[in-house]
Amino acid sequence: MRLHVLAGLILAGSSGAAATVGGKYVLLDVPYTAQGSSTQTYTTSTGEKADPWTFSHGLLTLAQTRPEFSEFRDAQGRVLRVNTPDGQLRSLSPVSWEAELSRAWRGRAWAYGSLNYACRLNEPGSVNFQLLPGQALQVAQVYRIQGTLPGVSHRNTFGAGTLFTDEPVEAVQPLLIEFSAPGWKATGGGGSGYLENTRRAPSVCRTGFLPLLDQGGLDRNLSHAPLASRPWEQRWKQPQGQATLFYRGWTKNDIRIAFGSPDEPGTLAQLNALDLWTYAGPMAEFYRFTFRAGRVVRAEEGHML
């Protein structure tokens, strides 16, 4: 799923309220067909074609709006002009600030599993970052998307489950967490200018956005207290075919640190009441953990195909 956070747009099909300077909006996944369509295109202020995905990892501020276009600037001063000959801005949803949740979570937090984040600096170059469980991130704000966001996972969609991503669902008014992570490291990437992008990325990609299904997703995926990195590190030492022997005795918290939040829906309290946790991945790989008295008594691994 591609997420673009913008300021001051209107949602196509909404009440049609006028765009307001300072209002924050989310630009959902933009199909390539829409980018080149006659009804909505993206350019620079000089009319050159622009890819909105390049602007996706940061806030854009509405600089001006006219019937035929709206113009935005990002933190680096780059301009994105959304051209709308028919007066409609598509795939957009307003974002409201969640004051209470922001106050509750603002500050240092730690992610279960690893937090992976891709920063797109130019087309088609990108840089991937990873934050491990023992490394702190800094939560800045919590927002709520006033619309339906497709493809959101019960786990966080930027990789708390590391290799695994459960079946995504349509999220009604999901949360969007704005965070920074001074300790994250570039782990790879691709496209043109990769080496130059890797050099520039730490100073440019200072803010990330994490979509979560609901308020329960905060407790499922983030911790106010530091997390031990040992379960994550030990996970990669598991001999193949010896999952039960390796994980027997691990607590549910150990498994969450190593694998992230499981596939099962529900609040953290509901998850902790379950005796079976599953992790299924896009390549049909899976892990299944059976607990008794809060500790692993059986672990299964394999492929579903």
Rank of each mutant, 00 (worst) to 15 (best):
N197T: 07
L195R: 14
G193E: 07
L195I: 15
S192I: 14
G183K: 12
R199C: 03
G188L: 09
G191L: 09
G188A: 11
A181K: 10
P202S: 04
A181C: 13
P182I: 15
W184F: 08
T198N: 05
W184T: 08
W184C: 02
G193Q: 12
L195V: 15
K185A: 12
E196D: 15
A186I: 07
L175K: 03
R200A: 09
I177T: 03
E196Y: 12
R199A: 09
G189L: 04
E178F: 03
L176H: 05
S192T: 15
A181L: 09
G190F: 04
P182Y: 09
E178R: 07
E178A: 08
A181W: 10
F179L: 14
P174S: 02
A186N: 08
N197P: 04
G188I: 06
S180P: 01
G191I: 05
S180T: 12
P182T: 14
F179Q: 02
T187Y: 02
S180D: 02
R200M: 11
S180H: 05
P174H: 04
R200V: 11
P182R: 09
A201H: 00
P174T: 01
A201E: 00
G183M: 11
T198V: 12
A186F: 06
F179S: 01
S180E: 12
G191V: 08
E178L: 12
G188F: 03
G193W: 11
L176P: 07
L176E: 04
P182M: 08
E178K: 07
G189F: 04
A181F: 07
A186Q: 05
F179E: 00
G183H: 05
